[in-house]
Write a protein that binds this DNA or RNA. Sequence first.
DNA 1: CATGTAATCACACATACGTTTGAATTAATC
DNA 2: GATTAATTCAAACGTATGTGTGATTACATG
Lengths: 225, 225
Amino acid sequence: MAKEQGGGPSDPTPGHPPEENGESLDTADRLLQAGRKLFSTKGFDGTSVRALTTEAGTNLGAITYHFESKDDLYIRVLEEVLEPIREHLEMLKGMPFSTPQRLEFFIRGMFQHLRENPETPRFFVQEIVLGEEPAPPILETLRVVVTVLTGIIQEGQAVGVIRDGDPMLMALSALSQPIYLSLMPRVLAREDLRRAGLPQPRSAPEDHAVDFVLGGLLVPEEESP
Amino acid sequence: MAKEQGGGPSDPTPGHPPEENGESLDTADRLLQAGRKLFSTKGFDGTSVRALTTEAGTNLGAITYHFESKDDLYIRVLEEVLEPIREHLEMLKGMPFSTPQRLEFFIRGMFQHLRENPETPRFFVQEIVLGEEPAPPILETLRVVVTVLTGIIQEGQAVGVIRDGDPMLMALSALSQPIYLSLMPRVLAREDLRRAGLPQPRSAPEDHAVDFVLGGLLVPEEESP
DNA sequence: CATGTAATCACACATACGTTTGAATTAATC
DNA sequence: GATTAATTCAAACGTATGTGTGATTACATG
């Protein structure tokens, strides 16, 4: 086997250009792309190495060569998918916003990320629900998100703009809306459900989520007496 | 093969007592029970026929005999798990409650069901996220739940106790809380996350969910001028 | 007790799985 | 142009998969 032991096929120092996307990605990147697509929609166990390598247009052995195993490819995909979320949270921390503005910024940022990366909530939910325990990148992301959100909420409670209540559960409820509302409408829009008379969403989930979460967390404004 | 073509091993008219649970369930029921446990925690693809029959303490061929196939067993499990939800909704329809009372009744009823049947939300999100399309029992349950909830919300909007907004998205948000909040706290209570300083929930998710959903949907009460 | 059906069983079948192997090919270095 | 390392490839490995087969046991009814 022509492979150094370090882990992965050495750094591609020789002249690879920044890689336009579409066709001319190198094999490892095409495998990551195939992993995003297939793992997210069919799950880890529902995705075979053969399906991945076919989707990536490469050979059966490519996963073992470029990554160590199917498991390792999966973890790499997960890390790539979750990275932008933590970046978004870093931005959130450094901004001089009020509590409601922070919450709205968080929700809209999450929606934007999930719109651009529809695989994310699928991975997230799979990891929460399946297997002994979620993979490390999921746990770490969850830890960061909940910590930041809980902090924002406690801050708001101290100032009196957020209701009394368990900050941790409030954080979970806020997080639930982008995840849940980026998954469900697609399902409910199915042809047969529409024909069965199911009412369809008429407004943007994003705007609804902001109203719903702020309504659920903020102390209601009093009418001037 | 000693099996009639109709589908399933004829009705057990001969003297089966109502079946205490625990040990003395017959093979088909033990397989359904094993399916609940394994399918819900490992997914369809992650659960082998051998794992199921071993868990049920029976022979490898038992699934093909008592059900037609692994797929058929899965659908049967799904139907059994979802049935009580529709029953709960039937009760909800017939009750002379106000809109907020209806919403609270729905949320608490869902929490109770999910507490007694922790597999339900796992099946639900697996079906939403994995595969081409959710299985028929899921779609039908979803249709009923969303239809009923949307009706309640529209009714409340007509009377003026519920805010303006898309009734369908409001229904989804209400449904999201029992599902999401019956899954997440278990994950966040993990030992390593607690050691990493993650704040832990201090109150009942059920009570929080009622406050959060009602806060997000109801028109805020005005202070008397 | 004899008969017939329901249920269980051990085992075989064909296919699909993730990974390994070693040769063939490509691309960079001297 | 020769040498070397990186990558791709076809084929094979051993194991696990879902289902089928036919014999065997359990049990109610005549």
